Computed example of a mutant assay.
Amino acid sequence: MTKRLEGKTALITGAASGIGKGIATAFVKEGAKVAIVDLNEELGNQAIKDLQEYQSDSIFIQANLMEHEQLAGIVKKVAEHFGKLDILVNNAHASRQNSIEATTKADFDLSFNTGFYPTFYLMQAALPYLKETKGKIINFASGAGIEGHANQASYVAAKEAIRGVSRVAANEFGPYGINVNLISPISNSPGVEKWASENPEYYQAVLSKIPLQRFGEPESDIGRVAVFLASADSDYITGQTIMVDGGSIKLR
């Protein structure tokens, strides 16, 4: 049986752990070769060892995505290593929680410099390669942005900016046969576990509003949807935000 991503190559940011690693694992199990990009060298090296059990050609690139001038070089390195680039997954994002009253420019700088700008610059740098392969871009939205969660101003601003620019990219890149979609997940991850331990009441409140009554799993829930969006099965879908959140938000 042919694997859905056989022969495909992917660049995935923030893939040393959590959702990014879950997506990378789902991809390699479907035959893709992946380059995972992450700041954490220790976790990145461990992640690539795990992935190489399924795909020996996968690689880890240690990088700080806040160094925006380096991003085009990362894309070039991945494309040259694999000979092409089929899939770009912009998963990485860091932020701090603060009320609007307490939010500072530094909060916005962190969120935009790790989330929005890398997403934008990596799409820009990947475009020539994705034109050649009629590739796929998967970006990340958030229910916090869609619903405007309290104490998330800087994160929400960056996430909604990502949604907006992804819709523009879908319109601009569509004529080249490139699909651009977003996943808005609720998932277990190290970040969520930390957040849950620090905000147990908020965690329970979020959990209680999930119709399926659980947080998603990075590989089996989020990763499988990413496989669909990265495969030929999604060729006629672009510019969409896919809610992978157990039914928490129903977009209209």
Rank of each mutant, 00 (worst) to 15 (best):
N171A: 15
T241I: 14
R96W: 12
S17H: 04
G247D: 08
S220D: 05
G20Q: 00
K84N: 14
G216Y: 08
V37A: 03
I19W: 02
T104Q: 13
G18P: 03
L251C: 01
T119A: 12
G83V: 03
K136I: 06
E193Q: 12
R163L: 15
A232R: 14
G223H: 02
K33T: 11
F228T: 09
K76N: 05
G73K: 03
A126S: 15
L88P: 00
G115K: 02
R252Y: 10
G247H: 04
L212A: 07
D50S: 08
G177C: 11
F140K: 02
D50Y: 06
P211Q: 10
M243Y: 05
A79M: 04
E132W: 12
N171Q: 15
N113I: 02
V34I: 10
E80K: 11
N199F: 13
N40D: 13
P190G: 09
F173K: 04
K49Q: 13
D57I: 05
E198F: 09
V156L: 07
N139Q: 10
K29I: 07
L182P: 03
V227S: 03
A72Y: 07
A141R: 08
K194P: 04
L43K: 06
Y176C: 00
Y202S: 11
V225N: 03
F173N: 02
N98V: 02
Q213T: 11
F27E: 03
S220K: 12
A32R: 10
L11N: 08
K49L: 14
E198H: 01
Q152S: 04
V37E: 00
E193K: 10
M66Y: 06
K136N: 13
E41F: 05
L5M: 14
K136G: 11
Y236F: 15
I210H: 10
E219V: 05
T238P: 00
Y203C: 12
N90C: 11
P218A: 05
E41R: 14
A106P: 00
N188G: 01
F215P: 00
K29D: 05
N90W: 05
S231H: 07
K77R: 15
S99M: 06
I19R: 01
I186S: 08
K250Y: 10
K33E: 10
R96T: 12
P128D: 15
A10F: 04
K33G: 01
E132H: 10
L5K: 06
A79K: 00
I48R: 03
Y202D: 14
R4I: 00
I146Q: 12
G14R: 05
